[in-house]
Write a protein that binds this DNA or RNA. Structure first.
Length: 438
RNA sequence: GGAGAGGUGGCUGAGUGGUCGAAAGCGCCGGUUUGCUAAACCGGUGAGGGUUAACAGCCCUCCGCAGGUUCGAAUCCUGUCCUCUCCGCCA
């Protein structure tokens, strides 16, 4: 969320920003509520002060009759205070609900537009688009031929949108994680595995809503926990309520997690196969920085995303996300879209955002500068290193050969143990060994 | 999952209803002393918010979190989260 005072003092700018983002929110009402709240707050504080004085005087009073009289006075004052406080709470609650729906400010260079159609292509990666002298298959077909993904079994066990990875796909998943972690660790990111569940208040602080019909979040029954949609939630939540020493910033983490998304309302060709699934594995980058450093960190995260995909030898383009497509917390966002021959277009594979102090304010993540008074909110940034399911699509579709085989990117070969995935027949499935103890 | 103990300032740790935002020690900052460092000594040292030109003053709030009792709560009560010990279960 934004700072209340900033909104009050810059109502016009905030209003304009909300329009650019396509968010309909009554900023003027918020300003009015804040005005009323300040007045009521002064009233409550004054009553409190007087009541405190009376209470103190009781402790010092000797005469019993005097004490009783004072107590009565105190009772009356406290009663008035409570009435005023209730009014204050009502004002604060209404202001808060508006505040929470006001999106972050937008970077002045972010393209203005209503949705992803207004996203601006910045540049393309060095790997050229593949040229096939045969009709390229999409990843679903390839995965079928190579027996890499079992969507039917996934549906049987957990429903549409779930899947089993098989054979080399499993090793590819591991290889992608190893690869990303190695690159990021060399860049000073602390490798982390994270909880796949988080408290709802943490989800909300990061900007996900576990409630509502359009929620992306799986909520666990009878608990205040939800399955995480991204390790951004847990990595950011890691420092909720904490104050960091400025000298420890920037703090760079990379987290491995499963991601669970309901994808309510999403269907169609664009969500075929592995593109839009309810569960996938992801390596996520996360950074806490000083306010002055977050723009540069965002560029750093974007460069790393490019490096990761360059290393995989996959063609992609980088887009600057339009204001209407930024969501609530992001100040600026770059998406990396890999070429996906199966869909004949680019598909989002990573996304990196500078959330400035928007998440930190909600989660109360602060930093302190040695020798200086007070604390300030840190900036938070997140970025996908590798979302395994979508990276698999790009690898399978771009690296497919005329004979149906798929060439494995060189950087993944050490873990996969081969340089090519050959077509295989389903009867090779083999018996499942008896489950042992331990 | 069951039983018990506990959560206090950057840290250790006192404080069981009334000038307690909180003793003491450590740490940290400033100063004195000193050839330099160390030691010793003196002083200072939490955060958030309101008011304000002000990081001056004044005021409000905060002793895990949320409620309750009371004129008054770090202290009493309830709930909740977390930590520790024991038991149970278990990869």
């Amino acid at each position: 969320m934004l700072e209340s005072r900033f909104i009050v003092e810059n109502a016009e700018e905030v209003n304009a920003n909300c329009r650019r983002r396509g968010v309909d929110v009554d900023v003027d009402r918020f300003v009015e509520l804040e005005r009323l709240r300040k007045i009521k707050l002064a009233e409550v504080e004054d009553l409190n002060r007087r009541a405190n004085q009376v209470s103190k005087s009781i402790g010092q009073a000797r005469d019993p009759a005097e004490r009783e009289a004072r107590k009565e006075e105190g009772r009356l004052l406290r009663e008035q205070t409570n009435v005023a406080r209730e009014a204050l709470d009502r004002l604060a609650a209404e202001a808060e609900s508006i505040l929470r729906s006001i999106p972050n400010l937008s970077h002045p260079d972010a393209p203005v537009g209503d949705d992803d159609a207004a996203n601006l292509e910045l540049f393309r990666g060095p790997t050229p688009l593949p040229e096939f002298d045969f009709p390229p298959r999409d990843h679903v077909e390839l995965a079928e031929k190579l027996d890499l993904v079992d969507f039917e079994a996934g549906a049987r066990v957990a429903g549409a949108g779930f899947y089993f990875l098989r054979h080399e796909a499993v090793l590819l998943e591991l290889a992608l994680q190893r690869y990303a972690l190695a690159v990021l660790a060399a860049e000073g990111f602390i490798p982390t595995t994270t909880p796949d569940l988080a408290r709802n208040e943490i989800l909300e602080g990061i900007g996900f809503s576990p409630r509502g019909p359009e929620t992306q979040i799986y909520r666990l029954d009878q608990t205040e926990l939800s399955l995480v949609a991204t390790a951004e939630i847990t990595l950011g939540g890691m420092l909720a309520g904490q104050t960091i020493e400025a000298e420890d910033l920037p703090l760079k983490l990379c987290g491995v997690s499963h991601c669970f998304r309901t994808e309510a309302g999403a269907a169609g060709r664009a969500s075929r196969g592995l593109y839009r699934v309810h569960q996938f594995t992801k390596v996520e980058m996360f950074a806490f920085t000083l306010p002055g450093d977050s723009d540069a960190m965002l560029d750093h995260l974007r460069d790393l995303q490019c490096r990761l995909f360059d290393g995989l030898g996959l063609p992609y383009r980088v887009v600057d996300t339009a204001t209407g497509d930024l969501g609530g917390p992001a100040y600026r966002k770059f998406d990396l879209e890999a070429w996906m021959p199966g869909r004949g277009g680019f598909g989002e594979v990573t996304s990196t955002s500078n959330c400035t102090d928007y998440q930190a304010r909600r989660l109360n993540i602060r930093y302190r500068v040695k020798g200086e008074k007070g604390t300030r909110f840190a900036h938070t940034l997140n970025g996908t290193a590798v979302a395994v399911s979508r990276a698999l699509i790009a690898i399978l579709e771009n690296n497919q050969q005329a004979d149906g085989s798929v060439v494995i990117p060189e950087v993944l070969r050490p873990v996969v143990g081969k340089d090519r995935i050959e077509p295989r027949h389903r009867q090779q499935r083999g018996a499942i060994p008896e489950r042992g103890k331990g």
